[in-house]
């Protein structure tokens, strides 16, 4: 009896984990976010489920890919990297889809300061729910240790503005962000959180089949936190590595091609162990 129920529980658990999760996460990834000096930055832009190396999705191309560079209180400068994008096929263990790579040469990053990378994808059609999704994604990289515009809005339709330096986080720190839609704070927004438990392999263009986390159930795969009256959320980072935050449906665009659109704001931060 006991054996049976345990087996049933196990099966239910497996089904939960195997079921298509709702945490679609746009990944704009490069291995390091705090560089002591300029280096070539190898980027991948992938639409997947990073906690489970799960289903891959076609993001519908990339509309914009650029960085807003600022050092100290100097002038912010926009550097367009869209021309560096190359289409690749990203292969997770059970799924593959078109994704993009970009190798940004060191010369573009030799000026010290913050580089706020912004990626605006096309539209992904979610057949099951008959809706479109667009996840506008930010990633902050610092060169040389002089901060710049990390805590400034990029002026996107929707975005998460970091209130904690996103490339300077220890494991156990909190990450705090403010969700904006058309520049205004969004109170009561749901922010989904996932850990990139499968390491990206940039040579193979794949997430590793091996997970660094044993999830006890599906609930723990995608966590959720709500923004307060000022649009702010605060989330502790329990493990070194990459954490993704997605504020769902906060963007001003609600329709695309006559169908419902979820325009989401995504940001990725990297936590580092204190050794």
């Amino acid at each position: 009896m006991k054996k049976l129920s345990l087996a049933a529980l196990g099966l239910a658990g497996a089904m939960l984990l195997a079921a298509p999760a709702h945490a679609h996460f746009m990944m704009t990834y490069t291995p390091e976010t705090a560089l002591e000096k300029a280096a070539d930055l190898d980027f991948r832009i992938v639409f997947t489920h990073p906690a489970e190396a799960g289903h891959m999705m076609d993001m519908g191309g990339v509309k914009e890919f650029y960085a807003l560079h600022q050092r100290g209180d100097g002038e912010a400068k926009k550097i367009d990297f869209k021309s560096l994008l190359k289409e690749v096929t990203w292969k997770n263990p059970d799924s593959s889809a078109p994704a993009f790579s970009a190798l940004i040469p060191r010369k573009e990053l030799r000026s010290m300061g913050d580089y706020m990378f912004v990626m605006v994808p096309g539209y992904y059609y979610e057949k099951e729910e008959d809706v479109y999704m667009q996840q506008i994604t930010k990633l902050l990289v610092n060169v040389g240790g002089i901060p710049g515009n990390w805590n400034m809005p990029a002026g996107l339709p929707c975005e998460i503005v970091p209130l904690a330096k996103p490339y300077g986080l220890w494991t156990g720190n909190v990450f705090q962000g403010q969700v904006l839609s058309n520049g205004k704070p969004v109170a009561g927004a749901e922010v989904e959180v996932e850990y990139m438990s499968h390491a990206p392999d940039l040579k193979k263009n794949a997430l590793s089949p091996k997970s660094s986390v044993n999830y006890p159930n599906g609930v723990m795969v995608t966590q959720a936190i709500m923004t307060d009256a000022n649009g702010v959320f605060t989330f502790g980072l329990p493990k070194a590595g990459w954490w993704g935050f997605a504020a769902l449906g906060v963007g001003p665009d609600k329709k695309h091609d006559g169908k419902e659109l979820s325009q989401d704001a995504v940001i990725w931060v990297q936590a580092v162990d204190m050794k």
């Binding site: 050092r71 100290g72 100097g74 000026s111 010290m112 240790g145 002089i146 710049g148």
Partner: peptide
């Protein structure tokens, strides 16, 4: 050459 301070203040 570029200068600055770790707190972002201007040089």
């Amino acid at each position: 050459c570029q200068g600055g301070y770790s707190d972002g203040s201007s040089a």
